Simulated assay, not measured.
Amino acid sequence: MKLNSRFLKSILLLSSIIVLLVALVTPSQAMQVQISPTNPHLGDTLTLLIEQNRGAGEPSVTINQKTYPTFEIAPNRFRAMLPTTPLEQPGVRQIRVNAGDQVRNLAVQVKNRSFPIQRINLPPGKAGTSATQYELDRVAEFKKLVTPQKYWNGPFTRPNKGRISAIYGVRRYYNGKFAKDYYHRGVDYAGGVGSPVFAPASGRVALVGTVSQGFRIHGNIVGIDHGQGVTSAFLHLSRIDVKQGDMVKPGQVIGAVGSTGAVTGPHLHWGLYVHGESVDPVPWRERGFN
């Protein structure tokens, strides 16, 4: 019995040594990074899916000297979302991904996109309107939200049943003067006054503002935090049906179309933001970002 016991202990020790040696000489799996869409244009949201070794820690993503957060979507799998806008120059983006002692350098070509020109003539009462500092501060604070939890699931839905009257990215002249560094940061729906505005995806109401509080440009506004740096803003409302802190679901009525703020007529403006930058909502509706 003693010989058998010693023999078994020797076998177990030898097995442990072999396993350790194999672990030392076997190279660790290289970090895998997948970028989509594969053929992006200005205004698109870039998605990075990162698969790494266990224990490597949370990866970081840097592009144009700006670092973006990543969020774990499965064991050892992370995702980062990178916005692009019409004000950027098309061309190659250099992306650096760090995870523990592994580094990946990638390049993605972001192509140009033609955006239409629109001429807007604001009536005398609206032409001289400027945003209040309170309004600017509240909206800027809202756009900076990066909630770790992901509230949305699947493609976003239409926030209003009206026809689309202005697409994302339109450049504008206001009363004959070109608006430098401006592009239409969202999609306009020409719904009638009082027609319902729906939440396009789940989230938390993180901003409620009214004209009486000083929202002179945005008008009555509702902002929804969808989580992980993705936010939606709904402008020019005639009515607000939610309060700050409410959790909403897709299709839930959050207000009604109006003509408050700097507008030429009643409509809903829906702006979608990724890490504070306005991106095209259409891909979020057509294919979604799960």
Rank of each mutant, 00 (worst) to 15 (best):
P200M: 02
G128D: 12
L145Q: 09
I164S: 03
R158N: 11
Q133H: 13
V208N: 03
S130H: 13
G194E: 08
G154S: 02
R204K: 12
Y151C: 03
Q118P: 00
H184D: 10
P124C: 07
F178P: 09
G191E: 09
P159I: 01
A190K: 07
R172E: 14
Y174H: 09
D137A: 15
N175W: 08
K144D: 14
Y174R: 05
E135H: 10
T129F: 08
D181E: 15
Y183S: 12
L145M: 07
T157D: 05
Y168G: 01
F142Y: 08
S165H: 06
F178D: 09
S212G: 13
R158Y: 11
R163T: 11
I167W: 02
P200K: 00
I120Q: 10
Y174E: 12
H184C: 07
F142L: 07
Y173V: 06
G194A: 08
A206C: 08
V197K: 01
A127G: 05
I164W: 05
P200Y: 00
Y134K: 11
R171E: 07
V205F: 04
G154D: 08
K177M: 14
G194T: 10
V146Y: 03
A190M: 09
V211Y: 05
S165P: 07
Y168M: 05
E135A: 06
F142N: 04
K150L: 13
F156W: 12
Y173L: 12
F178I: 13
G209C: 09
G192V: 04
G176A: 12
W152H: 02
T147S: 13
V187Q: 07
K177F: 13
Q118H: 14
D188Y: 01
K150Y: 02
R204F: 00
F142G: 06
Y151V: 02
L136N: 11
S202A: 14
Y189V: 04
Y168T: 04
L207V: 10
L122A: 07
K144L: 13
A201K: 01
I117W: 12
N153H: 10
H184T: 09
F198H: 03
V170H: 09
Q213P: 06
A131Q: 12
V197H: 00
Q149C: 00
K144A: 14
G169I: 00
E141C: 05
G209E: 05
L207Y: 09
T147R: 08
V193F: 10
T129I: 14
Y173K: 03
